[in-house]
Design a protein around this nucleic acid. Structure first.
Length: 215
DNA sequence: GTAGGGTTAATG
DNA sequence: CATTAACCCTAC
């Protein structure tokens, strides 16, 4: 069989089993489901195969959304998790608590052009994939362990299979400080649990960021 | 590899 | 239209 020239996941994602859903405008209409799927979870290996599965399993689409961390993945595979990570970003849009909330779960849109990989090169400009509360929690955990500034180590330890790069982690931490430490924002897009926010503040105090520039 | 300013898609 | 946050650029 011929290998397709256009793929919807990077080699890296293919390896980790995560890929981006090539959402088209038309697809986004149907119950808002496809548009919500920023990630697909590959239980097999080939991306294209996964795309088929993905399209076919409408009802389980939310489960397909489970992603990223090994621990969570394992838990999910054993049937432990039931809440979509999307719920984290949607919780303040009255979508909370809908176990299989297909309808109305749609809120975010990913750029249809944002994920295309052509002959190994990204045509993408940006992914704009939202961080889930879970990921943030993991990041905070990592920072408490490594402190601020050892992002690649943190990546290896806590985000090994995640699409988040060490730079992403660094940027996210900066955003967290802006959102919860300085507290001058008018609103946040993702409301975290107060304890987690508190932890962020403590860590921020413990590890001043931006770092002091010179001796 | 990291810090920090810059860019812009998504959102209020 | 204003702001947030994810991602980019690049000096060091």
């Amino acid at each position: 069989m011929e290998q397709p020239e256009i793929k919807f996941c990077s080699p890296e994602m293919e390896q980790t089993g995560l890929f981006w859903a090539p959402v088209q405008e038309e697809d986004q209409g149907l119950d808002g489901l496809l548009g919500d799927l920023q990630f697909g979870l590959a239980s097999g290996t080939a991306c294209d195969l996964q795309m088929e599965n993905y399209r076919a399993r409408d009802d389980d689409a939310l489960f397909v959304l489970q992603l990223l961390e090994d621990a969570d993945l394992d838990e999910w595979l054993s049937g432990g998790l039931h809440q979509s990570p999307v719920g984290d970003t949607l919780s303040h849009h009255q979508m909370l608590g809908r176990k299989s909330g297909r309808r109305g779960m749609r809120k975010r849109r990913i750029s249809p052009w944002g994920t295309l990989v052509f002959e190994g090169k990204y045509i993408t400009r940006k992914n704009n994939s939202r961080w889930t509360a879970k990921e943030v929690k993991l990041l905070v955990q990592g920072v408490s362990k490594f402190g601020v500034g050892r992002w690649s180590e943190l990546k290896k330890k806590y985000f090994k299979t995640s699409i988040r790069t060490s730079v992403n982690l660094k940027d996210k931490w900066r955003n967290l400080l802006r959102a919860y430490q300085e507290n001058v924002q008018k609103y946040t897009l993702l409301d975290l649990e107060p304890p987690l926010v508190e932890q962020i503040r403590k860590l921020a105090a413990k590890h001043p960021y931006p770092k002091r520039r010179h001796s």
